Simulated scan of single mutants.
Amino acid sequence: MTPSDLEQPVILSLLGAGFVTAFLHAALPTHWLPFVLVGRAQRWTLPRMMGAVTAAGLAHIVTTAIVGGLIVAAGLAMDQWVSGLLPHLSAVLLFLFGAFYLSRSLIRRPVPADGPPLELAEPAVSHAAAFWGLVAMMAVSPGEVLLPIYLSQAGEGLFILAALTVAFAVGTVAGMAAFTLLARAGWSVLRLERWARYEGAVLGGALIVIGLLVVAHQH
């Protein structure tokens, strides 16, 4: 089916719904909290954090589009396999990130409460490793809530599916960026720097909890 076969208001409504769905889907903590926590641990500037958010969001949608295409081609049988396997890969990466930061904080000698002013520690891992780890975390976990939309529009042709993918990408990146910025601002407003000596433990524990939530969501 070509774009002329659908009225423009219908197309715009469909794309608008895709954007809103993707934006709201980005409100899930797995789509922004790891970026705030890892960005904090790595002492990333705002542009670098937003670069990671953008790259990860686009990777997330590329995977979603690929899986959506496979589901459209193979039917619903593919959906059960995808929803059962790939999200667990994301949880594994979250566990690995969390375990690393948590173990690092436990083996580091604690700073005495009455000691000198606490200085921020050097980043725990290389910036490249942290960046690509976050991108991989999102890439291996397609947006399940978006997959049924692909399936519902399977008969409308490649143009509509491609336009939906663009709407998903814009909505996802915009949502992830917005919620990451809000969380980052909240961190500064609450002056959480005073808890920096416990940051490794909090960071590791939070990432592990997020991973557990991802697994629990699948059952």
Results as ranks from 00 to 15, higher is better:
residue 3 P to L: 13
residue 7 E to G: 08
residue 13 S to P: 12
residue 14 L to F: 10
residue 16 G to Q: 07
residue 18 G to M: 11
residue 21 T to E: 15
residue 27 A to N: 02
residue 32 W to Y: 14
residue 33 L to D: 00
residue 35 F to R: 09
residue 35 F to G: 09
residue 35 F to A: 15
residue 36 V to G: 01
residue 36 V to Y: 02
residue 42 Q to C: 03
residue 43 R to L: 08
residue 44 W to A: 06
residue 44 W to I: 06
residue 48 R to C: 06
residue 49 M to H: 09
residue 50 M to G: 09
residue 51 G to A: 14
residue 59 A to W: 05
residue 62 V to A: 13
residue 66 I to N: 03
residue 68 G to A: 06
residue 69 G to D: 03
residue 76 L to Y: 01
residue 78 M to S: 11
residue 88 H to D: 09
residue 89 L to T: 06
residue 95 F to V: 15
residue 96 L to R: 09
residue 96 L to C: 12
residue 98 G to A: 09
residue 100 F to A: 10
residue 102 L to M: 08
residue 103 S to V: 09
residue 106 L to T: 04
residue 109 R to V: 11
residue 110 P to W: 02
residue 111 V to D: 04
residue 113 A to T: 03
residue 118 L to P: 02
residue 119 E to V: 00
residue 121 A to F: 10
residue 121 A to M: 09
residue 123 P to C: 06
residue 125 V to R: 12
residue 128 A to L: 14
residue 128 A to K: 15
residue 128 A to D: 11
residue 129 A to M: 11
residue 131 F to Q: 05
residue 134 L to S: 01
residue 134 L to N: 04
residue 136 A to T: 13
residue 137 M to Q: 15
residue 138 M to H: 14
residue 139 A to T: 08
residue 140 V to K: 05
residue 142 P to S: 08
residue 143 G to L: 09
residue 144 E to A: 13
residue 147 L to A: 03
residue 148 P to T: 12
residue 151 L to S: 12
residue 152 S to H: 11
residue 154 A to R: 07
residue 157 G to H: 09
residue 159 F to W: 15
residue 160 I to D: 13
residue 164 L to S: 12
residue 164 L to E: 14
residue 164 L to P: 05
residue 170 V to R: 07
residue 173 V to L: 06
residue 173 V to P: 02
residue 180 T to S: 09
residue 180 T to L: 05
residue 183 A to Q: 05
residue 197 R to Y: 00
residue 198 Y to E: 07
residue 198 Y to G: 11
residue 199 E to P: 03
residue 200 G to E: 04
residue 205 G to A: 08
residue 206 A to G: 09
residue 211 G to F: 02
residue 213 L to Q: 10
residue 216 A to K: 03
residue 216 A to Y: 05
residue 216 A to G: 08
residue 218 Q to M: 10
